[in-house]
Nucleic acid binder design. Structure first.
Length: 375
DNA sequence: AGGCAATACG
DNA sequence: CGTA
DNA sequence: GCCT
């Protein structure tokens, strides 16, 4: 070190190697805002997302998760990454992904991502996995059987009921909804549901609430101040939507059957009587009047007391949800789920919340607008 | 070396 | 177990 | 694949 009379200033003023001070460098994505459309690192993020998706299709979930962490950080980063050293300082970017970034900085692309994009196999797996009811296992099975198109998959003799529906509705479900399309459906839901239950609360969640310009589906959380009324909510709503000709199919219909069976060491879980607090939901194919296109609409019913956590839990993004759950468990000895916030002490205790912000406050997470939860 | 979100349905 |  |  002798002879090197660098001042602190000089040592740390290599902007190239310093993280932007505005960036919140954390492994918990929920602790910082992540915009839907970042101003920086867009191209890099797109390429890394290609690799991430390929890992998922390959069944390498943990590997894919690592890419997701890195991508989330880059989306939140307030300027373009300019060096390998800079990238490596970001929590979540290790040697492998760091090398991809180095390649990108010198060549303008990532070879592995280019190979994946050019691969017929991945193009096909990608299509198959977009079918409702089909994950990477089924997609790969179909690919191995030699299927090349959705049409060929429809001839498969082992389709589940849901997969058959997913294939039949594939073309419609592929069509993205504009915010106006979604508003049209929301207007109908509001009118139909409030005519029957004037006090019903109806909140659109999912990507729409996060500000997405186009959505593949619409998620809606419905609740009612009177728990007794809320009991038949889903059944009544689905029934009336069918009667009015809006619903074409039920893709998934789960009810809160009072079966809290299993080894339950009993009474625990909640201090209240809400053990049968399964959320009920109906994923359905909804015919949009103006276009006659079948839209995937997910109706989620929440007991009034769980309304805030359900809205938070269904707003996403997927990574934001994983992050907030992870943070709650690791840093606060709590469990967060759509059906509530719990303190993991001896008798596991439900923590009452009256708003979405309550959850952030209790967990000690700075408020993040829905539009900034796009990690 | 262990963990990576959580949970219900078919 | 596979999917959402 | 990355963090602890």
């Amino acid at each position: 070190m002798e002879g090197n009379n660098f001042t602190d200033e000089e040592l740390s003023s290599d902007m190239e190697f310093d993280l932007d001070p505005c960036f919140i460098n954390t492994k918990y994505e929920c602790l910082r805002p992540t915009p839907l459309k970042p101003k920086y690192n867009q191209c890099l993020v797109e390429l890394l997302e290609v690799i991430e998706h390929a890992r998922e299709l390959n069944g390498e979930e943990r590997n894919a998760l690592s890419y997701r962490h890195a991508i989330a950080a880059l989306k939140a980063y307030p300027r373009n990454i300019e060096s390998y050293a800079e990238a490596r300082k970001i929590i979540g970017i290790g040697p492998k992904i760091g090398n991809h970034i180095k390649e990108f900085l010198t060549t303008g692309t990532i070879p592995e991502a280019e190979e994946i994009n050019a691969s017929e196999k991945y193009q096909t797996l990608d299509i198959f996995s977009r079918v409702y009811g089909v994950g990477y296992k089924t997609a790969r099975k179909w690919y191995q059987k030699g299927y090349k198109s959705i049409r060929e998959c429809m001839k498969d003799p082992y389709l589940t009921h849901v997969q058959r529906l997913g294939l039949e509705l594939f073309d419609d479900f592929q069509k993205k909804m504009s915010r106006q399309d979604i508003q049209e459906i929301l207007d109908i839901l509001n009118k139909v549901i409030k005519t029957m239950y004037p006090d019903c609360m109806i909140t659109p969640v999912g990507g729409y609430r996060r500000g997405k310009e186009f959505s593949g589906d619409l998620d809606v959380v419905v609740s009612h101040p009177q728990e007794t009324v809320a009991n038949n909510l889903l059944k009544d709503i689905v029934e009336i939507l069918i009667n009015k000709g809006h619903l074409k199919h039920k893709l998934f219909y789960g009810q809160p059957s009072a079966k809290n069976k299993k080894d339950v060491p009993s009474e625990l879980i909640s201090s209240h009587k809400n053990i049968m607090d399964n959320l009920d939901k109906c994923f359905c194919a909804f015919i949009q009047p103006s276009t006659r296109i079948c839209r995937q609409v997910d109706l989620i019913i929440a007991p009034y007391s769980q309304y805030p956590t359900t809205v938070l839990g269904w707003t996403g993004s997927k990574q934001f949800e994983r992050s907030i759950r992870n943070f709650a468990k690791k840093e606060k000895k709590m469990t967060f789920a759509s059906h509530g916030l719990f303190l993991n002490v001896v008798p596991r205790r439900r923590v009452c919340v009256t708003s979405e912000k309550d959850v952030f406050d209790i967990l000690g997470i700075p408020w993040v607008e829905p539009e900034m939860r796009n990690c």
